[in-house]
Simulated assay, not measured.
Amino acid sequence: MKKLLFAAMAVLITATVSFAQEQSALVLPMFGNKPKTEEQQQKDEKFLTSCDKSFTNRQEASAFFMERGWEYYNEGQVDTAMYRFNLAWLLNPNNKDTYWAFGLISSAKGNEQEAISFYEKTLAIDPKNSLLLADIGASYVTLYTEKHKKKNLRKADKYLSESVAADSANAYALYKFAVVKFHTKKYAEAWEYLHKSRSLDLRTIDYTFVADLVEKMPDPMGVFKSSDAAAVTN
């Protein structure tokens, strides 16, 4: 394991040279998805050759860089994470998790339409993944709040329904489903899904949303009060 890590670090140092030189392209999904110059192609080949010498195969190398990418992503270092995800994609364009990662970062940067396009690439390979379906549904919810087009809300409802069907204990999907029900003015159902989500993972709850829901309809279970909502909004 130590030998593998040292070898991987050497590969990263080599790749980081081009990162410093071409940073703007390297922090875009799939390196910006544009034709590369001959020099860039040579750098890619050098990187791939280094990985071939350091790992059992390119799938293993791709998985390694995905892990490093998630570490940076969880630390909030989005651009550095994107670079690692790009390296993982370069090593294995069939790694579905790279497209999922591209979607998450696109969403984090406020580009929901781009995020959805990447999620759909992953969904074509893994159509019953509850977490993925929830992420797509969440992006459509965001698009609806930005543009107020009902088709986005309908798509959010579809994907979140599929997410909950695949995993009824997906707290995030249940919470986003509550948001969809709120926007369709089905407040009783919104409370139902909100409480299901809350019972599984309280961290999924956005209390600003709770305040908005309380204004439309008091909590049937009496857990959230109007005074709580006022405290959140003030």
Results as ranks from 00 to 15, higher is better:
residue 139 S to G: 10
residue 139 S to D: 08
residue 139 S to K: 04
residue 140 Y to A: 05
residue 140 Y to Q: 06
residue 140 Y to S: 04
residue 141 V to W: 02
residue 141 V to S: 02
residue 141 V to P: 00
residue 141 V to A: 00
residue 142 T to R: 15
residue 142 T to W: 03
residue 144 Y to L: 04
residue 144 Y to T: 01
residue 145 T to S: 13
residue 145 T to N: 10
residue 145 T to Y: 09
residue 146 E to P: 00
residue 146 E to A: 09
residue 147 K to D: 09
residue 148 H to W: 07
residue 148 H to A: 10
residue 149 K to R: 14
residue 149 K to C: 11
residue 149 K to N: 14
residue 150 K to P: 00
residue 150 K to W: 03
residue 150 K to E: 12
residue 151 K to L: 07
residue 151 K to R: 12
residue 151 K to E: 14
residue 151 K to F: 02
residue 152 N to L: 01
residue 152 N to P: 00
residue 154 R to N: 07
residue 155 K to D: 08
residue 155 K to L: 13
residue 155 K to N: 12
residue 156 A to N: 04
residue 157 D to R: 15
residue 157 D to H: 15
residue 157 D to C: 03
residue 158 K to V: 00
residue 161 S to Q: 12
residue 161 S to V: 09
residue 163 S to V: 07
residue 163 S to E: 04
residue 165 A to K: 15
residue 166 A to V: 06
residue 166 A to N: 08
residue 166 A to R: 03
residue 167 D to V: 04
residue 167 D to I: 06
residue 168 S to C: 12
residue 168 S to V: 10
residue 168 S to F: 13
residue 168 S to K: 15
residue 170 N to L: 06
residue 170 N to D: 11
residue 170 N to T: 02
residue 171 A to G: 09
residue 171 A to H: 05
residue 172 Y to R: 12
residue 172 Y to N: 08
residue 172 Y to K: 10
residue 174 L to V: 05
residue 175 Y to H: 10
residue 175 Y to I: 04
residue 178 A to S: 14
residue 180 V to L: 09
residue 180 V to I: 12
residue 181 K to T: 07
residue 182 F to R: 02
residue 183 H to F: 11
residue 183 H to E: 06
residue 183 H to S: 00
residue 183 H to A: 00
residue 184 T to I: 13
residue 184 T to D: 09
residue 184 T to P: 00
residue 185 K to G: 04
residue 185 K to I: 06
residue 186 K to T: 09
residue 186 K to E: 14
residue 186 K to R: 13
residue 188 A to T: 11
residue 188 A to N: 13
residue 189 E to Q: 15
residue 189 E to M: 10
residue 189 E to G: 05
residue 189 E to N: 15
residue 189 E to W: 11
residue 189 E to I: 09
residue 191 W to I: 01
residue 191 W to R: 02
residue 192 E to A: 12
residue 192 E to V: 02
residue 194 L to W: 01
residue 194 L to I: 05
residue 194 L to Y: 03
residue 195 H to L: 06
residue 195 H to N: 10
residue 195 H to S: 08
residue 195 H to A: 02
residue 196 K to S: 10
residue 197 S to Q: 07
residue 197 S to C: 10
residue 197 S to M: 08
residue 198 R to Y: 15
residue 198 R to T: 07
residue 198 R to G: 01
residue 198 R to A: 12
residue 199 S to H: 13
residue 199 S to P: 03
residue 200 L to K: 06
residue 201 D to Q: 12
residue 201 D to V: 05
residue 202 L to Q: 14
residue 202 L to A: 14
residue 202 L to E: 14
residue 202 L to G: 07
residue 203 R to S: 14
residue 203 R to A: 11
residue 204 T to K: 12
residue 205 I to C: 05
residue 205 I to L: 11
residue 206 D to E: 08
residue 206 D to Y: 07
residue 207 Y to F: 15
residue 207 Y to R: 11
residue 211 A to K: 05
residue 212 D to C: 11
residue 213 L to Q: 03
residue 213 L to S: 02
residue 214 V to I: 15
residue 215 E to D: 13
residue 215 E to C: 09
residue 215 E to Q: 14
residue 215 E to N: 13
residue 215 E to S: 15
